[in-house]
């Protein structure tokens, strides 16, 4: 599996289209993968977790996330321009971070996961 990791960033860029609407304070993610299992596109809390863990957004930002399984589009709405900018910046680095983190983690010796202590914890609930 690890041999897939170096290509990950490119796959993200090819598979997920990001569209921003600054006026509406909206960011849309269109997932182009065809065979997503119904229910698997994600839940709003999973999208928020992704932004927190891989986008590095640690401050509390109230996001309104809508998941449309028919169109495979996830819509994230922010409350104001400042928060929009924070999320927009986070999204620009998110694929790269998610890729690099996986590569870094796969190179860590067992028992030496200390380098991830600042990453925080994932929500383990489905």
């Amino acid at each position: 599996m690890e041999e897939l990791f170096p290509k990950l960033n490119n796959i993200f860029n090819d598979t997920i289209e990001i569209r921003e609407d600054k006026d509406q304070l909206l960011i849309e993610l269109k997932i182009k993968k065809k065979d997503i299992v119904p229910g698997d596109l994600g839940k709003p809390n999973e999208v928020k977790e992704m932004i927190r863990m891989f986008g590095g957004v640690k401050q509390e930002i109230s996001l309104d996330v809508a998941v449309d399984e028919n169109t495979n589009i996830i819509t994230i709405k922010m409350r104001n321009k400042e928060e929009f900018e924070i999320i927009s910046t986070a999204m620009k680095n998110l694929w790269k971070n998610a890729s690099n983190l996986l590569i870094e983690a796969s190179n860590v010796e067992p028992g030496s996961a200390g380098s991830f202590k600042d990453l925080g914890d994932f929500d383990e609930n489905y």
Binding site: T15, K33, D40, G42, E46, E49, M50, L94, W95, A98
Partner: peptide, 9 residues
């Protein structure tokens, strides 16, 4: 986890 679920099975 997301976003990996969007590209891999």
């Amino acid at each position: 986890r997301l976003p990996y679920r969007w590209i891999w099975n």
